[in-house]
Design a protein around this nucleic acid. Sequence first.
DNA 1: CGTTCAACCTGGGCGC
DNA 2: TGCGCCCAGGTTGAAC
Length: 269
Amino acid sequence: MRRGILGIVGSTIARVERPPCARRPISISPGPAALRRRLVGARVADVSRLGKRVVIELDGAGDRLVLEPRMTGLVLIAAPPTEDHLRLRLWLEGGPVPWVAYWDRRGLGSVRLLDPAGFAALADPARIGPDALGVTGALLRARLGDSRRPVKVGLLDQRALAGVGNIYAAEALFEAGIHPERRCDALSPREWERLARALRRVLADAVLSEGSDLGDGTYRTALSGPGRYQNQHRVYGRAGQPCPRCRAAVERTVLGQRATFHCARCQPA
DNA sequence: CGTTCAACCTGGGCGC
DNA sequence: TGCGCCCAGGTTGAAC
């Protein structure tokens, strides 16, 4: 998502549009007047990321617009899937992109404009772990090695490690040959190393492929096209289908209230 | 500390 | 066709 809207860097926000037709309003703060006052005229200095959140950095006071898409939020610079769940659109000038928008069907996500102090609180290392894209075996072990939780539950804990979601936790564990229910404190340094390598590879490939389209139209790229990483899923969403490595049937279980997929033969308990 | 549950929401797919 | 159910890239707080 971040890479998809890098073209807005350098543009100036000319108008803030809050489309009226969204059913239940999502959480947008501050209110319309303050949002407009602080955004209009501001220049986009950069687009960054804080775990799963997209951060539009503004020059001047150092305010940041933090987009948290949760399940169905999209950050778009092209036609949204439908008009009715468009939540916020920033009209731009001085650059190649006419506008950037936040769209969210289920509306579980949020948009927050934070001053430097507010953002610092959000980025507090006590509240969010180091980013998963550059994770190492030693880092994983330091963050999770003493936990008695199942390793897949640990991977999804954003305080321990930021950025891993349900699809990529399952895919990385398969890639590393580690059963999702293995207790964190039972993993060897070698296994943490394998898992770190698998995470880096899965996440980097997923970024290059612009994410996973689950087939229900939930996810789109910034240009409103489908992601392509679903074509590389080895276990996620493939219950009953043959494991790509050993042909045994992929199993679906529930762990920490989330669907989990693994191959019992390639990922022994 | 770890697990479970409910809540926040909409909509697609399925069986009947 | 309609309806009831299950499911979905997530997070939070309360209860056990």
